[in-house]
């Protein structure tokens, strides 16, 4: 697959640009976190497109951003479960 360039992305309508970026990101994320790939890809697509393009060019920065998203997700899930257990305790 040829690298995605800014001009290729800019040629697509805005609503399709996230889809195009997601299609590129998903397999890379799936290779690291198969069970969370859909969720993490969705989280990363919140970042603006120019930064996502840079991340696609730099495996290290993509890797660290994926791990950052996993950490945020884990904190969120722990706070959810602690809220649930607290609410069931009352």
């Amino acid at each position: 697959q040829e690298p995605l360039t800014a001009s290729m992305l800019a040629a697509a309508p805005p609503q399709e640009q996230k889809q195009i970026l997601g299609e590129r990101l998903y397999p890379l994320i799936h290779a690291m976190h198969p069970f969370l790939a859909g969720k993490i890809t969705g989280m990363l697509l919140e970042i603006d497109n120019s930064e996502l393009l840079l991340m696609l060019e730099s495996p290290e920065s993509l890797h660290s951003k994926i791990e950052e998203a996993v950490a945020v997700l884990q904190v969120h899930q722990m706070s959810e479960s602690s809220h649930k257990s607290a609410s069931t305790a009352f």
Binding site: M43, L45, E46, V72
Partner: peptide, 26 residues
């Protein structure tokens, strides 16, 4: 500086590639 992942992004919709069919091992 790169954008950090915001806590709010946990509410972002999940993304699956077009034509994705979940395999039941997920």
């Amino acid at each position: 500086a790169p954008t950090s992942i915001s806590k709010l992004s946990v509410n972002a919709p999940e993304f699956y590639p077009s034509g994705y069919t979940p395999d039941f091992t997920d």
